[in-house]
C-alpha cells in the first residue's frame, strides 16, 4: 500500500472512530437522530454511487428500492410483533423484492442506451408512488402510518450505533466489491462501455449485477429510515428522495463511496443548520435557497466532488514522482 493510500485509510478510520465516540461527547437526542439520518442516507447515496459513479448508469427512480425497504419493514412491524426477528424478515423481503425488481428492470433496459434505464426506473418508481397512494387499506396513502419498533431500536443511542455499524460494514463490503476484478470491470464500463465489451466482457451481465447490488443496499437504507421515523408514507417513493442521493454522492464525489458519506453529512448538517437559523431570522425559513446556493458553490469549486477533487490533487502529486516498477511487481 502506498503512503498516500495509507493516509487515506487512516483518515477514513479516523472519521469512523470519531463517529463512534461522538455519543460520549454529546447526549443530545437530536444529535443522535441527525447523525442516524446521515448514516442512513449515506448508505442510500453509496448505493446510488455504485450505479452512477462506478458504472455510469443513470437512475431517476432509485427511490423505488428505498421505498420498498421502508414499506416492507414498516408493514411487518405494524402487522406482526415489533421484534428484531420481524424487522429482519422485513429487510429480507425488501432485499428479495428489490433484487428481483432490479433484475427485471436491468434485463429490460440495460441492453439499450443508459437513458432507457433512467426512464424506466422513473416510470416504475412513480407507478409505485401511485400504488402506495391508492392502496390505502395497506399503506394509508399519503397520510402514512406509525408503527412500533423493536426494543433495541427504541433507544436512540443504540439505534445510532446500529446504523453506524451497518454503514461502516456496507462501506467496507462495497469498497471490496469495487476493488475486486468485477468492480474494475464496472469502472471500465463506466469509462468506455464499447471498449470493455471489445475486450470480451459481457457488459449486460455486469450492469445487471451492479443494479441488483445497488437496489438491495438502497432497500436496506429504506428499512432503517422507516424505523428511525417510526412512520412511513408515500414520500419515500418521491423523486426528491432520488435527488437527495444524487446530490449527496455528487457533492462528496462520484465513484469514491466515501464521498457519499461525506456528502450525506454535508447535506443533512446544512439542512439542519439552516433550519435552526430560521429561529434567528425569517430569511432562513427559505433554507432551500441557501441549500441550492451551497450545491452550486460545491459544484463550481469541486466539479469532481470533495473527495474526488482531493483524490485528483493527490493523484497529480503522485504521478509526478512515479518511478519504474521492478520487474517482479508485474502481472503474476
Amino acid at each position: 500500500m502506498t503512503t498516500s493510500g495509507l493516509l487515506n485509510h487512516r483518515f477514513i478510520l479516523f472519521v469512523f472512530l470519531s463517529l463512534a465516540v461522538l455519543p460520549f461527547l454529546s447526549d443530545s437526542r437530536s444529535i443522535y437522530i441527525l447523525f442516524t439520518q446521515i448514516f442512513i442516507f449515506a448508505i442510500f447515496a453509496m448505493s446510488f454511487d455504485l450505479l452512477l459513479g462506478y458504472t455510469g448508469i443513470v437512475s431517476f427512480g432509485h427511490c423505488m428500492f428505498f421505498g420498498i425497504g421502508a414499506y416492507s419493514v414498516s408493514l411487518f412491524l405494524k402487522n406482526f410483533d415489533a421484534t428484531i426477528g420481524y424487522f429482519l424478515l422485513g429487510v429480507l423481503v425488501a432485499i428479495v423484492l428489490s433484487g428481483m425488481l432490479s433484475y427485471v428492470i436491468g434485463m429490460l433496459s440495460l441492453r439499450l442506451k443508459s437513458h432507457f434505464y433512467a426512464m424506466l426506473t422513473l416510470a416504475i418508481s412513480q407507478l409505485l408512488f401511485v400504488l402506495a397512494e391508492k392502496w390505502r387499506s395497506l399503506t394509508m396513502g399519503g397520510d402514512g402510518f406509525t408503527f412500533p419498533v423493536p426494543e433495541l431500536f427504541r433507544d436512540r443511542l443504540s439505534f445510532y450505533y446500529v446504523c453506524l455499524i451497518l454503514m461502516v460494514m456496507l462501506f467496507v463490503i462495497l469498497r471490496a466489491f469495487t476493488l475486486s476484478p468485477l468492480g474494475k470491470v464496472l469502472k471500465a464500463i463506466g469509462q468506455n462501455e464499447q471498449r470493455a465489451e471489445a475486450l470480451g466482457y459481457q457488459i449486460l451481465h455486469y450492469k445487471v449485477i451492479v443494479s441488483i447490488v445497488a437496489g438491495v443496499v438502497a432497500a436496506i437504507s429504506g428499512g432503517l429510515y422507516a424505523v428511525m421515523l417510526r412512520f412511513v408514507n408515500t414520500q419515500v417513493f418521491s423523486i426528491e428522495t432520488t435527488l437527495d442521493a444524487l446530490l449527496m454522492s455528487m457533492i462528496g464525489g462520484l465513484g469514491t463511496l466515501f464521498g457519499s458519506i461525506l456528502g450525506s453529512g454535508i447535506v443533512e448538517l446544512a439542512h439542519h443548520g439552516l433550519t435552526e437559523l430560521a429561529k434567528l431570522h425569517p430569511i432562513f425559513e427559505r433554507w432551500v435557497i441557501f441549500l441550492g446556493l451551497l450545491y452550486i458553490l460545491v459544484v463550481l469549486c469541486f466539479p469532481s466532488g470533495i473527495v474526488g477533487s482531493f483524490q485528483e490533487w493527490r493523484e497529480k502529486r503522485k504521478q509526478r514522482s512515479v518511478q519504474p516498477a521492478p520487474i517482479t511487481e508485474q502481472v503474476e
Binding site: 469509462q191 471498449r195 471489445a198
Partner: peptide, 28 residues
C-alpha cells in the same frame, strides 16, 4: 455474434481513439 463473443474468439481491436481507460494504471 455479439461484440464480447467475437472478442472471446480471439480478435483484438484497437480503436481510432485508442479507447484507453484513463483512470486505470498500465498495470490495471
Amino acid at each position: 455474434l455479439s461484440t464480447y463473443s467475437i472478442a472471446r474468439k480471439g480478435i483484438g481491436y484497437v480503436p481510432e481513439n485508442q479507447g484507453i481507460f484513463h483512470d486505470f494504471t498500465v498495470e490495471e
